[in-house]
């Protein structure tokens, strides 16, 4: 009985949150998120070492804070950029939003389907051909084989594979792998697209093509999150920008002002 009550309550709560999100037009709500990592001095990953260390009481960890009370609301249809130096927690934040990492504390609410482009071609099997990889990669993102069949021609065309379709991917250049990965991930219009540093691979023409595709998605109302070190790219694409520094939010606001502040600081 108790259990039942709890369950109903939780659904209600969820519902309220969802409605609130809808009204505010938020796609992603990040509230007070903290991410701690145990950094042991050495990685103990075998039993012998574990017991020796346990016995000697040397199992000491250093608490590393990758994200420190980060809060941000990202609106629907917005192109949101995240900048910051290496190790400032950008990728950690993206991973937390896409559900790969669970935050130590705080909440993350995501409204809609997320297509992560965290590393193009992750999950490609080098021994398989491009054709086989398209299906494998598509199903990694949760698409059905039928759906991939329907979009197959489009994917092949976008990635400009042509005659290389039945060649094992290990013989490809990294740019070609990135092209397939991008084409597969954006084949169905996602609600939220997460782009981590990937636009820096591939040649100039491909980058342009990707940007055009991102622009198309934005027209269709997709929320885009971009991490990049190329400030001009951020300036060109983003509506709003967040500046992370050592896991803390340094600044959130208009693209120009944040980029300028970041530039003058670095």
């Amino acid at each position: 009985m108790d259990f039942c009550f709890l369950k109903v309550n939780r659904i209600n709560l969820f519902f309220i949150f969802e409605v609130k999100g809808e009204i505010l037009g938020n796609a992603i709500e990040v509230k007070n998120v903290e991410m701690h990592f145990n950094m042991s001095k050495e990685k103990v990953d075998n039993l012998k070492e574990y017991f020796i260390k346990l016995y000697k009481r040397q199992l000491m960890y250093e608490d590393f804070i990758a994200l420190d009370k980060v809060s941000v609301d990202i609106k629907k249809g917005e192109v949101f950029g995240i900048i910051g130096r290496n190790g400032s927690g950008k990728s950690t934040l993206l991973k937390a939003i896409s559900g790969i990492l669970k935050p130590t504390s705080g909440t993350i609410k995501v409204y809609g389907a997320v297509a992560p482009l965290i590393e193009l071609g992750a999950g490609f099997d080098l021994d398989l051909t491009a054709r086989e990889n398209i299906f494998l990669n598509g199903s990694v993102l949760g698409f059905s084989n039928k759906m991939i069949h329907e979009k197959f021609a489009e994917i092949v065309e976008f990635s400009e594979l042509g005659e290389f379709l039945d060649v094992p991917v290990k013989n490809y250049s990294s740019g070609m792998v990135a092209r397939i990965g991008f084409a597969v991930a954006t084949m169905v219009k996602p609600d939220i697209l997460i782009v981590d540093e990937i636009l820096s691979v591939g040649d100039f023409l491909f980058q342009q093509k990707c940007e055009r595709r991102i622009n198309d998605l934005m027209q269709g109302g997709t929320t885009v999150l971009i991490v990049s070190h190329m400030l001009e790219q951020i300036r060109r694409l983003c509506n709003r920008v967040m500046w992370l520094d050592k896991g803390k939010t340094k600044m959130i606001g208009e693209t120009e002002s944040v980029c300028n502040a970041y530039e003058s600081c670095v």
């Binding site: 896409s98 790969i100 992560p116 965290i118 590393e119 992750a122 999950g123 990694v140 993102l141 949760g142």
Partner: peptide, 9 residues
């Protein structure tokens, strides 16, 4: 691991 690190499945 390469998949688990990058995609939520």
């Amino acid at each position: 691991k390469s998949l688990i690190k990058k995609v939520h499945i």
